[in-house]
């Protein structure tokens, strides 16, 4: 499935105002959204770029290089759980989890961000054990709080990111209990809200369908002009690939460093 995206930012002071404006635009009441996101990354470190070309150079001289396999990218994935206010009161939730994967946005400037996404619901079993079994580890957890509207084909999500206060501890698994809602603090200290307008397009390889979605999203952007400036952010800001980080000398074991 393809996702077309536009983002805008607005100060906390204008949040109430925009809620009302969007309710008028979409002709519906805002729907409360509370989500818990757990970010996973592969345990394996990515290969150094170009290392596949150097490998086995001494024997490779006489051999023709049959094919050069490109180093496969490793990606961050997420598990998402849709929560309710009651879940926070009881401090635990039995809501089902969903595995979400967002690809790096496409190159090419359409005026909106286009990326491939896939989401798979866990029906049964332990999602965390599944993720770890595939060689992933937990990186961090955050909560998304906000409101959702639907306007024509556009999903409008006015949200902010909440985190648990205190330093990010090195958790090995998602916490079994939820924190109280009041103890969560906004990631952005100024409490800025993010407006995300998105259209989901079925992946049937039809460029015309994507273009129609792009046009509709751009029309929505024009509609909100002067109210919230929606824009497509730099695609690398939404990069979900794991970056290769060269080991510094300080981290090498003593024998290797000497």
């Amino acid at each position: 499935m393809y996702e077309l995206l536009l983002f805008g930012q607005l100060p906390r002071a204008r949040h109430e105002q925009l809620l009302k404006i969007l309710a008028g635009v979409a002709a519906m009441q805002p729907q409360r959204v509370l989500e818990r996101h757990v970010v996973y990354r592969p345990q394996r470190e990515p290969d150094e770029p170009g290392s596949n070309l150097r490998r086995g150079a001494s024997q490779g001289i006489v051999q023709k290089q049959v094919k050069q396999t490109v180093a496969r990218d490793l990606y961050f994935t997420q598990m998402v759980q849709t929560l309710t206010e009651e879940d926070f009161k009881e401090q635990k939730s039995a809501a089902p989890w969903t595995l979400q994967f967002n690809d790096v946005p496409d190159t090419g400037d359409k005026g909106v961000t286009v990326r491939m996404v896939s989401s798979t619901d866990f029906v049964e079993g332990d999602p965390h054990a599944y993720m770890v079994g595939f060689g992933n580890k937990v990186v961090s957890e955050y909560y998304v709080e906000g409101h959702r509207y639907v306007h024509k084909n556009i999903l409008i999500l006015l949200h902010r990111v909440l985190t648990e206060p205190g330093p990010q501890s090195a958790e090995q698994s998602p916490k079994p209990s939820l924190p109280t809602f009041d103890s969560l603090s906004s990631l952005d200290p100024s409490g800025t809200y993010i407006l995300q307008a998105s259209i989901r397009v079925v992946d049937n390889g039809s460029p015309a369908l994507i273009d129609a979605g792009v046009e509709e999203l751009k029309a929505f952007k024009d509609l909100l002009k002067g109210c919230v400036e929606l824009d497509a952010p730099d695609r690398l800001l939404l990069d979900t690939r794991v970056k290769y980080q060269p080991k510094s000398f300080a981290n090498l074991p003593p024998a290797a460093a000497a």
Partner: peptide, 21 residues
Amino acid sequence: NEPPRLPLGTVLTYMSTGAVP
């Protein structure tokens, strides 16, 4: 007194990779 606004890119990066901004 209000703290400065976090750039949109930082929040988006955090949401996609979990990196502490």
